[in-house]
Design a binder for these strands. Structure first.
Lengths: 132, 132, 132, 132
DNA sequence: GTGGTCTAGACCACC
DNA sequence: GTGGTCTAGACCACT
């Protein structure tokens, strides 16, 4: 599995990993029930700290994306993904609003913005977030 | 002018202020040439430190959204707003990708996502980001 | 006489005025013995404060570029311009060094830099700093 | 690494530091990928406040000269230096014009000016800005 | 230990 | 009064 970490990014490593894994699920590279690398294995692969991978897995477990079994390791939640919670809806709206506002100020039209959103969504689902 | 600060948010205060001001411009509440409160005045209004306001103003000045007049204080750039730079385009795509992926994983359809984007954009432009 | 003031510049107004007048002398628009506008006249023309013009004139007088007569007003020093003082030489070297270093870092060659310097000097002398 | 701060200078400390670091890169004392001292360490070395160092680093980061690694601290951008942007070109021309005009007024010839520029450039590149 | 953020209080140049 | 700069001291997230 290949996940690219950007050490220069302002985005924390654990958050980058969380995002990458979600993008992997969105693209179909990871399906419910699929196993994930062990904490130490992934940490070694990415050349990052154990705690960083652990934090990402823990967050994804809390959100319901992953399940952690005692001995079998970590798997994508076989019961399916969590739905649109109100917390997520809030986050989505809040972040979208900031992006939309700056896009508008910089001269982007409503259509151009919607098209861009649609295109990005499509590539994310079709494999833009491919992991392996 | 009313800008609400969320002291509990994980988003830095200066970033919240930056976002609020951009939303104010997008909504039309702030137009090119309009004066902004002095750093000290706005800091007092918001109950935060003047350096925090200064940081937000400085960032917006560097991006080309604001200008500082000698003595007249800070104004919205009368020459108009900066366009779609490649840096902004990158940021937009990157952040949109994360939001789209999580939305997809949680079961949102491409149409629903695009509609939501369009709706948020419209409210941002029409006054959803109203400041005063 | 037309001197353009940039109210948005980080350069103080009085310094902009000083620079403009020196450029006017360099270009030949102002020659030794030539009269300059009165303090209040120039201030009114430029739409700036009396003190600002006064400060610029005072600095130029101290440096030896101008002479101030009690009743006849301000004139370009009829005795000619000051030469290369060690203070000026220091300033020139120091500022040139900063510009040269950044130019070099950004990939400009020694020749390109020298050419640019020569070109700017030529336009300054030939009328690039034209005032009237 | 030795950077000298002039507390009496009219040029801000953070700007002096910015200039020194750029001169260090130009001279080859600092190469892409090289680590820089921590903000606290350098501040202690120079006897100034860490915020002042931070401001200099932040500016250089925004310009593309430096990068910050998560945990490794600050390094000279391994991807190479930014090129000649139009913003830099404007700044170069503007500042060069002022220096050229005053040099001309004080009696310097075009050749002498160009020679001086060339010489300063050469010393800046070859070690005139030596830091260590 | 690192950079990032925030606060508090101060001085200065400019106009 | 305005923004710009500097200092001092503190807390936090990240690794």
């Amino acid at each position: 599995m290949f996940v690219e970490m950007d050490l220069q990014s302002e985005v924390p490593l654990y958050a980058q990993l969380v995002d990458s894994l979600i993008e992997g699920i969105a693209s179909g590279a990871l399906k419910p029930g699929d196993p994930l690398p062990s904490v130490r294995g992934l940490a070694a692969d990415l050349g990052i700290n154990l705690h960083t991978v652990n934090k990402a897995y823990t967050l994804l477990k809390q959100e319901g994306f992953l399940q952690v079994h005692r001995k079998q390791g970590v798997v994508v939640n076989p019961g399916g993904m969590p739905g649109i919670t109100s917390a997520f809806d809030d986050k989505l709206t809040r972040q979208l609003k900031v992006l939309a506002a700056e896009s508008a100020v910089r001269g982007m039209s409503a259509e151009a913005f919607a098209d861009r959103c649609k295109e990005v969504f499509r590539t994310a689902v079709e494999g833009g977030g491919r992991l392996s």
